[in-house]
């Protein structure tokens, strides 16, 4: 997995609560059996004016220039500023894959859908929770200041504004270290295989019917 330490980048805003994973990557693109290829269809129904189908050449499609990610001033942004409950809905990890492939490395919002939040950490995408007041202040700053950048530092757990203000954020230590090192979580768990076996033996005593076949 991709490691994450810090990112210093332009910020793209998406001010709308409850953006669900269906909106992040619509279902027709979930027919793929691969992990890649989802970036061009990120926010497909909002980014393009035509109907999106798998396998299209997205470079040729008409774009919705009202949509923030299509505006040149946010081109190349690696930080997405979003509203409450971003990533709610379906557990599709394709949402995290699409955001990453598009170029985002960090997301900032007052809250995230639980499953999506976890999926981000498994893929090297850092979701940062800041309180709603700070997020609306950042939205205002992004809108008012072309070229507005933020620095998100996972080691220090801070988001730093251009004026040098460092805003602290919380992150679970386990998630933090996995992201910093980009480690293979399955390999790590398999190192505890003996403990899993030991647990199974104990559990078999308590609920033998779960171990009959």
């Amino acid at each position: 997995m991709l490691a994450f330490t810090q990112v210093d980048s332009l910020v793209a805003p998406l001010d709308r609560p409850n953006i669900d994973t269906d909106a992040i990557i619509p279902k027709q693109f979930l027919k793929s059996i691969k992990r890649t290829g989802f970036g061009p269809n990120l926010f497909d129904e909002w980014r393009y004016l035509d109907a999106g189908l798998p396998g299209q050449d997205c470079a040729q499609r008409p774009r919705n220039l009202q949509f923030s990610l299509n505006q040149p001033r946010y081109g190349g942004a690696q930080i997405l500023l979003a509203a409450e409950n971003f990533g709610c809905g379906s557990s599709r990890e394709h949402a995290a894959w699409a955001l990453l492939e598009f170029g985002f490395r960090a997301l900032i919002a007052p809250s995230f859908g639980d499953i999506f939040y976890g999926n981000c950490f498994k893929n090297g995408l850092l979701p940062v929770v800041l309180n709603a007041g700070i997020v609306s202040r950042l939205f205002a700053a992004v809108a008012a200041t072309p070229g507005y950048r933020l620095r998100v530092d996972l080691t220090k757990q801070t988001v730093t504004t251009p004026s040098g203000e460092a805003i602290a954020f919380d992150v679970d230590p386990g998630n933090k270290s996995r992201l910093l090192d980009g480690i293979d979580e399955i390999g790590l768990t398999l190192a505890s295989a003996a403990q899993i076996r030991y647990y199974e033996a104990r559990r078999r005593e308590l609920e033998p019917w779960l171990f009959t076949s």
């Binding site: 557990s91 599709r92 990890e93 499953i115 999926n119 498994k122 768990t189 398999l190 899993i196």
Partner: peptide, 14 residues
């Protein structure tokens, strides 16, 4: 519910 990375994790490690 879980995402695909976790599906793989459960398959491999229970």
């Amino acid at each position: 519910g879980i995402g695909t990375s976790d599906v793989e994790h459960v398959l491999a490690t229970q």
